[in-house]
């Protein structure tokens, strides 16, 4: 997991503009990748990243400096994504005919075909399993960190990643490329 300097967070908390710019730039890549891999939509990832950064800024007083900074950031990012999914589910209920095609936004983004295949495969998994796999495989989190973030026991985090790998293997072996 990305390590952020403690002094940078303290300066950011005091309202230092330079610290804010440096911190946001450090958080940009991992958070954008996280949102992009879960949503597979560049615009959504940009919006969620912006909302996350603003929430970090507005809620920095509530951060306890005795604990690590990044788990706190990941918790905010995860909540933002869950909020987004909830809002999307409401859209699905209201206008099902527009989203029935179940097409990911891959056609609007510049990802490779392999990425689109993997996204289609991950879409067949539950949100929590998909998230656990993305956090483990792409974001490089440890099983302990995933368990802490998802508020689940350690063996559950491991089994989610294992289940995702099995499903991905099945998907690609079935030749759904």
């Amino acid at each position: 997991m990305l390590k952020i300097e403690k002094q940078l967070v303290i300066d950011f908390g005091k309202g230092d503009a330079k610290a804010a710019a440096a911190l946001f730039e450090q958080l940009r890549r991992p958070l954008f990748a996280y949102f992009y891999r879960l949503s597979f939509d560049r615009c959504v990832a940009e919006d969620l990243l912006q909302e996350t950064l603003l929430t970090i800024h507005s809620r920095i007083e509530t951060y306890n400096h005795e604990f690590a900074f990044m788990p706190w950031v990941w918790a905010i990012a995860r909540n933002k994504f869950l909020e987004f999914k909830r809002s999307q589910s409401r859209v699905v209920r209201l206008i099902p005919q527009l989203v029935r095609s179940n097409q990911p936004a891959a056609s609007f983004c510049d990802a490779s075909d392999t990425g689109a295949d993997l996204h289609n495969c991950l879409d067949t998994l539950s949100e929590s399993t998909k998230e656990a796999f993305v956090l483990k495989h792409f974001q490089g989190m440890t099983f302990n960190e995933i368990a802490e973030l998802q508020q689940i026991p350690l063996p559950t985090a491991k089994s989610r990643v294992l289940f995702a790998i099995k499903k991905i293997r099945e998907y690609f072996n079935r030749g759904e490329l």
Partner: peptide
């Protein structure tokens, strides 16, 4: 082999967030 390329994005989000912060 499992790879999902991520475009270099997030610049707009960061600049907008910084504007709002300032």
């Amino acid at each position: 082999e499992l790879d999902m390329a991520v475009p270099d994005g997030g610049h707009r989000a960061v600049s907008e967030a910084l504007k709002a912060v300032s």
